[in-house]
Amino acid sequence: MRKKRRSYSLILALLAAGLLVLFLISCGMGRYPVPLDQIVRILLRRMGIAMETTWTGAMEATVLRIRLPRIVLACMVGCCLSTAGAAYQGVFQNPMASPDLLGASSGAAFGAALAILLGAKMGMVTLSAFAFSLLTVLLVMLISVRAPGKRVISLILGGVMVSSLFSAGTSYIKLVADPSDQLPEITYWLMGSLSGTGMASVLFACVPMTLGLVPLLLLRWRLNLLTLGDDEARALGVHAGGLRLTVVLCSTLVTAASVSVSGLIGWIGLVVPHLARKLVGSDYRALLPCSMLMGAGFLLLVDDVSRNLLPTEIPIGILTAFIGAPFFLYLITRKEAAE
């Protein structure tokens, strides 16, 4: 058993190292390539370590002001969506659950579309998306409290219904939006993109993300018990209802923060936890950190493709599905998957 735990740590360390390498390479990628050694020097200087200036001002501006915020945000969003997905799957005892199960995404989409329709600036759009995302999930939870019967089922049904309500609202806004400028902006937002990310988005997102991720990480052992069902968890001494509420709230917080800065990026929250499960098993002690690292790496990789493959950017929401779905299909149809 000791050996097994060590192998988890090894996998996590390898993933972290891989993420770091990918992070550095990503900083150099783009129409204006920056050599790897210069990137390391620029970043070290930024962290306050004395470095001789061997790079040009243009290199520094490109890396620090244009690429770094976007790369950091890609990692944060990937990490959060994957963690929230893994947590939701445990809480709802359902491997098909994804972070938008309770309407976080459709709420955010409605909030963003509404703000764009009202002519708000980008910062307000983000804020509105965040607020509506939280509001939607809270609404679903209030509904489920009033519904008799099994809490989990009423939560999921409430989520489906409220989601479709907000989707209808978003469709209506698209209908009445100005087709020359507002409609394309809404459509583009809905497809999900990290382009034009500045430090402001990173700073905005990092507060709710930290507030959500830290409790999830701390409670990760107890998440295992929730997957057994409420009765069993309670008999084992865990307050299942309170724990589920906490986990759902934290997951919602990080999902809302992610969606509000990146638009709708589907798929990743559903699939990364599955890939992580194949790597380290179902135990959330290993699964949660593994999902975080894999999610961060995966979204960063997809974003690199999104901004470098074609001269014009491909929205990342489209790419996650294009890259992810075939990869996942390959994984589940492999022979070893059958055992």
């Binding site: 058993m1 097994k4 445990g90 005892q93 359902n94 491997p95 295992n224 018990l225 997957t227 057994l228 084992l236 499960r277 098993g281 179902s282 135990d283």
Partner: peptide, 14 residues
């Protein structure tokens, strides 16, 4: 259960 835990992990949950 929905997810596969090792027997030891199951016991640890106790």
């Amino acid at each position: 259960p929905t997810f596969n835990y090792s027997a030891l992990d199951m016991v640890l949950m106790g």
